[in-house]
Simulated assay, not measured.
Amino acid sequence: MADWGNSMMLGPFDLCRVRRAAFTLVRAVFVVPDSQRAILDAPYQFYVFELFHRSWINKLSHFVGIPVAMMCAYSGLSLTGAAVLASVMLGMHIAIARASRLEGHIVVPLVVAHGLLFSGGVFVVAPFNGAGAELYRNPWLQVLACSVLQYLTHMLEPCVPAPLSLDGRMQPMRLWVRSLTLRRAVGVLLLSVPHVMVELISSPRNLFLLIVYAWKRCGYSLMSLSRMWDFISSELSSVRPAFSLAEFRHRFNSIQSCSDDLS
């Protein structure tokens, strides 16, 4: 019995292998796990969004799919439930703006955007879905369909990130497809379901980014984020861009320090 118990104990080397395997699995599912926990770090969220949404078709599918998914979600709830969800979403986005010192510039657009999405879901999408029993009128299938669409358009991205790439770098999609093995193809297929779920849970925080993008497109410069845009432009051309939050902060802060020294 003692021998069996000793045989079941993992040594330091085995624990390292288990931890490494667990980290690889988490990285394979979430690609950038830090983006799921550093929700209040707007510069990092913008950076990750730009890094993985370079294709205009992919970016368009998110700009359309995320707001539509939110309206479909509102349509599937009672009026009280939809109001509570809208309030939670607005509160989360104001918290992000506050943490990034944007609350004085973006609160009004946030309130307007969430009001429009709530109204669209409750007064437009809900009556449409309630007009029949067809499968396509199911609001939760509509939400899922939006996430599937967003996942599929990632295949149009010019580069494949680690750990899906072969060498841990941003690998060109054409080269990655050419070197695709059966084992790796099966792995990608198995990861498709969790990746769709990641798209789903990422939508609420990405909605904040889309609202800021829309506000910026309307002509507001958001000078407090000007250095961030410059940093993102430089990182997009790198074959080894920062992925982790710690690496992003190190590089971003280094550039800020250099800019301050030059000024």
Rank of each mutant, 00 (worst) to 15 (best):
residue 95 A to R: 10
residue 95 A to K: 06
residue 95 A to N: 03
residue 96 I to E: 02
residue 96 I to Y: 03
residue 96 I to K: 04
residue 96 I to W: 03
residue 97 A to R: 01
residue 97 A to S: 04
residue 97 A to Q: 01
residue 98 R to W: 14
residue 98 R to Y: 13
residue 99 A to E: 13
residue 99 A to W: 11
residue 99 A to F: 11
residue 100 S to W: 00
residue 100 S to H: 01
residue 101 R to G: 04
residue 102 L to N: 02
residue 102 L to I: 04
residue 102 L to M: 15
residue 102 L to E: 04
residue 104 G to P: 02
residue 104 G to E: 08
residue 105 H to Q: 15
residue 106 I to A: 09
residue 106 I to M: 06
residue 106 I to W: 05
residue 106 I to Y: 08
residue 108 V to C: 09
residue 108 V to Y: 14
residue 109 P to H: 07
residue 111 V to W: 02
residue 112 V to E: 05
residue 112 V to A: 11
residue 112 V to T: 09
residue 113 A to G: 06
residue 113 A to K: 03
residue 113 A to T: 07
residue 114 H to L: 04
residue 114 H to C: 03
residue 115 G to L: 09
residue 117 L to M: 14
residue 117 L to H: 07
residue 118 F to K: 00
residue 119 S to E: 12
residue 121 G to D: 06
residue 122 V to L: 09
residue 123 F to A: 13
residue 125 V to E: 02
residue 127 P to N: 03
residue 128 F to M: 12
residue 128 F to H: 00
residue 128 F to E: 00
residue 128 F to L: 14
residue 130 G to V: 08
residue 131 A to D: 10
residue 132 G to D: 05
residue 134 E to T: 06
residue 135 L to I: 13
residue 137 R to F: 10
residue 137 R to L: 14
residue 138 N to M: 01
residue 138 N to V: 00
residue 139 P to F: 02
residue 140 W to Q: 07
residue 140 W to A: 03
residue 140 W to C: 02
residue 141 L to Q: 04
residue 141 L to F: 15
residue 141 L to W: 15
residue 141 L to H: 08
residue 142 Q to N: 15
residue 142 Q to E: 13
residue 142 Q to D: 07
residue 143 V to L: 06
residue 144 L to P: 14
residue 144 L to V: 12
residue 144 L to K: 12
residue 144 L to S: 15
residue 148 V to S: 05
residue 148 V to N: 06
residue 149 L to N: 06
residue 149 L to I: 13
residue 150 Q to R: 10
residue 152 L to T: 08
residue 153 T to Q: 03
residue 154 H to D: 00
residue 156 L to R: 06
residue 159 C to E: 11
residue 159 C to I: 01
residue 163 P to L: 02
residue 163 P to D: 03
residue 163 P to Y: 01
residue 163 P to Q: 01
residue 163 P to S: 05
residue 163 P to K: 01
residue 164 L to N: 07
residue 164 L to E: 05
residue 164 L to M: 08
residue 166 L to Y: 15
residue 168 G to I: 02
residue 168 G to Q: 03
residue 169 R to K: 12
residue 169 R to N: 05
residue 170 M to A: 07
residue 170 M to P: 04
residue 170 M to F: 01
residue 171 Q to S: 08
residue 172 P to Q: 06
residue 172 P to W: 06
residue 173 M to I: 04
residue 174 R to S: 12
residue 174 R to V: 10
residue 174 R to P: 00
residue 175 L to F: 10
residue 175 L to G: 14
residue 176 W to V: 05
residue 177 V to I: 14
residue 179 S to H: 14
residue 180 L to N: 10
residue 181 T to P: 09
residue 182 L to A: 15
residue 183 R to T: 15
residue 183 R to K: 15
residue 183 R to G: 13
residue 183 R to M: 10
residue 185 A to E: 05
residue 186 V to K: 07
residue 187 G to D: 10
residue 187 G to N: 11
residue 187 G to H: 08
residue 188 V to T: 08
residue 188 V to C: 10
